[in-house]
Structures are given as structure tokens and as C-alpha cells.
Amino acid sequence: MATLKEMASKEELFTGGHRACAGCAFPIAAKLALKAANNPVVVACATGCMEVATTIYPYTAWKSSFIHSAFENAAATISGVEAAWQALTRKGKLDQKFDLIAFGGDGGTYDIGFQALSGAMERGHNILYICYDNGAYMNTGVQRSSATPFGTHTTTSPAGRVQQGKRQLRKDLTQIIAAHGVPYVAQTTTGHWSDYVKKVEKALAVDGPAFINVLAPCRLGWGYPPEDTVKIAQEAVQCCFWPAYEVENGVWRITVKVREKTPVADWLKKQARFRHLFRPGNEGLLEEIQAEVDRKWAELLKRTEESAELSA
């Protein structure tokens, strides 16, 4: 993997001057992905914060090629770019490798872009899809998505007198994509630069589709001070709400060790979107959330242990 010093010496392909909020996490995912690439990059981006903030005509933060088409079709768009690359290379009209990366938020990936993503993964294009998951439709003003955690207050799952935030569990998209049997699937956070860069490098190196789900905190939607963007992502891993792991050719591996599993409530407490859960009478909800995190964590451990046994 490239060292920080090596990365620092590479050309900066993602500039400042974009309009993301101060302390936003997705620019970290964008710029590090470009740093991790070893070929010229074409980015396809779903409608959402990343597209809106980085490409306001006539400004673009991208020094790689970039295409935005619509909300739900980043995966299909990059499929087309890849098909063009295949054909033009085969016909002898092009002699240049490219790293083809699609970005989408959780709304554009888990929800409206889910079908296009599944299709692109199944067809086996040589692409990397990176979902920057901030757990809600942030660009339109924090509406719940299928990535929103249970109990979260959003503008369409508000905490009210009779309902306490989102009533459903979040969709586990990383596992769903792993079930597609593609060569590389991983999840990590924007607070784990080294883990993230390593995963992007691996994902770009495989021949075929790869998917990375990167937790990208949103200070506005989550409600925490902007300087905590890195820390809050790191703590999501330490409380096992968002384990950092990879599934490489079917082998499940945890990539960021959890030294001492912290209570999920400690993490929730730091975010305004969960404030209502700490009101008297909602103790049961906190217990439910912890139980679900424990269940998912145990399930993941089991998978990684099974993988270790099989590959031993």
C-alpha cells in the first residue's frame, strides 16, 4: 500500500473550493480514492451532496474525468463507460487503462439506485462502486433512507409524541452486495484513512466489480461538532455499529481490530439525531439497538471465523 508520504507526493486530483459543508466527510472519501488509483480515473457520480457540492458549473473539484447523469443510475452510467472502454480497446481505438469509480450516497445506492447497482455487479463490469453512507438523504434535508439506523430522528422519521424516530432496522447493503459473489466487497469509514486506501487499492486491482461501503458522517444530519468528523467515524467501528471488514473472493476478514467493544449508547449520545433515545421511557429502545449491534457483530465474527477455518 502507498505510504502517506507517497500519496502526498502524488498530484492532487480533488481540489478545494467545493461547496461541501465545513467538516463534511465525503470529500475525504473522494480525494483518498483518487490518491489510491494508479491509472487515470473516470468518476460517475449519483445525484446527491457529492455531485451538487463538487460540480457547480463552471466549477469542478475534479481533475479526473467526471460524469453525473441522474440519481439512480451511477452504476449503469459507469457500466456504459466500462463497455465503451472494452469496445474501444478491442477495436484498437484506445490504448490506456483507466480506473472506473462510481460514487453514490446511501439514498442513491441503497434505495433508488439499488437495482442499477445490483445489475452492474451481476454483469461483472470491471468497476468500483463506492457508497458514501451518511445514513439519510442529506442533500434534500435529512430524510430517512433504508440505510438510516433504527431509532434515528430524521425529517421523515421524526421523534414525536408516539413515535421515536425510524421504526425499521437499516438494510445491510454490504452483505447484500457480498451475496452477489463479486470478487471484492468491503466496508470501512472515512475516519480510517489507511484501511480505506488499502481497500480502494485492492478493489481497483481485482478484475471485475468491487463495492466499498464507506461510512461518511454528516455533521448536520447527525448533529455533532464539525471537528469530530474523524473521531465519530472511528467510534462507529469501536462500538461495532459499523465494523470495518472485507469479503475478498468469498473470504470474510475484519480489517480494523476492535480492542474493547464500547457501548453503542456512548456513540449515540454524541449525536443529536439520537437525543430522544435518552429521554426517560426510551431505555428499551437503547437496549434494542445494543442487542441488534451485538447480534450483527456475533454474526460477522462467525462468518470471519468460518472463513479463517476454510482458508486454513
Binding site: 460524469i67 459507469i78 456504459g80 463507460v81 463497455a83 465503451a84 442499477a116
Partner: peptide, 9 residues
């Protein structure tokens, strides 16, 4: 969408 991506490429 794929046709758009291909054509832009």
C-alpha cells in the same frame, strides 16, 4: 443510462 455513459466515453 449505460448508453449515455458509453457515448460520453
Amino acid at each position: 443510462s449505460a448508453t449515455v455513459g458509453a457515448s460520453a466515453a
